[in-house]
């Protein structure tokens, strides 16, 4: 019989939920600490606005932000790999940029772009492009010097070395970057919505807070987590199917 590796984690999570359920029941203040069952109930009650209006708004933000981050991250990683001067110039600036608290800058973006989608997209991009760039850059560098030399002895040019060696070598890193970036992009979009929006799960959660609806605050958060977990699972599945050689390089 195949052993379920997730079983200990599942048991632990279930135990935490039970503690939470009984703890919250004892506190008996649903407006600040709802029980897990109350949250699920509220999620069901709010399904209409959550799934038809706010989830699509957040996913649009996340999707656009992630797409821009991927394009930007891939481009920067390739440029830094190809041009040592670009690496020396950009890499330290990028590392330094990560010390800036993006969430603190978000109100500024709201001032610049108003309540449009672009203030949220910008927060998402700023949070996610960095892990994509750095991880992919490491991936491009993971191609062994010996293999590059071998390609040279075959008469390969830089273009062929990139497409036949470096790019495939970087693929597992790309998947790792995606697994990191997707939850971060959802968080980025939610933070942006929290600070200034007219729709989205972040915005909805904040609206519920002003109404002292504890379960209503948690419901969109649970939904966001579930979405992130589902997408990461899909990426992991694709990775498993496509990258059968991880660790062989």
């Amino acid at each position: 019989m195949r052993k379920n590796n997730n079983l200990p984690a599942l048991i632990f999570t279930f135990a935490l939920l039970i503690i939470w359920q009984f703890g919250a029941m004892k506190v008996n203040a649903a407006y600040i600490l709802p029980t897990p069952l109350q949250i699920i109930k509220r999620l069901w009650e709010l399904r209409e606005p959550l799934f038809t209006a706010h989830l699509p708004a957040t996913m649009t933000c996340t999707g656009i932000g992630l797409l821009i981050s991927i394009v930007l991250g891939v481009a920067l990683a390739i440029i830094m790999d190809m041009f040592p001067l670009a690496e020396k110039t950009l890499y330290p600036v990028m590392i330094a940029s990560q010390t800036i608290p993006t969430t603190a800058l978000a109100p500024l973006f709201v001032m610049w772009f108003g309540y449009t989608i672009w203030s949220k997209v910008l927060v998402t991009v700023l949070i996610t492009f960095f892990p994509i760039t750095v991880t992919l850059f490491d991936g491009l560098r993971s191609a062994k010097t010996d293999m590059i030399d071998l390609m040279h002895t075959f008469g390969a040019n830089d273009y062929e070395i990139f497409f036949k060696l470096k790019l495939p070598a970087a693929l597992p890193y790309f998947f790792s970057a995606m697994k990191m970036a997707i939850p971060m992009s959802i968080i980025g979009a939610a933070i942006g919505e929290w600070l200034g929006a007219t729709a989205g799960l972040g915005y909805f959660s904040r609206r519920m807070m002003t109404q002292l609806d504890g379960a209503g605050v948690f419901a969109p958060i649970v939904l966001l987590s579930a979405i992130a977990m589902i997408i990461v699972s899909i990426i992991s599945y694709l990775e498993k199917k496509l990258i059968t050689w991880r660790g062989d390089l």
Binding site: K144, D146, M147, L150, M151, F154, G155, A156, E160, K164, L165, P168, A169, L171, I243, W245, D248, L249
Partner: peptide, 20 residues
């Protein structure tokens, strides 16, 4: 051996010819 792990044996053998 430096065989590329993402390529099959046949694809690895084709590599020098693909470049030439």
């Amino acid at each position: 051996d430096l065989l590329f792990p993402w390529r099959t044996v046949g694809e690895n053998l084709k590599l020098p010819m693909q470049i030439q």
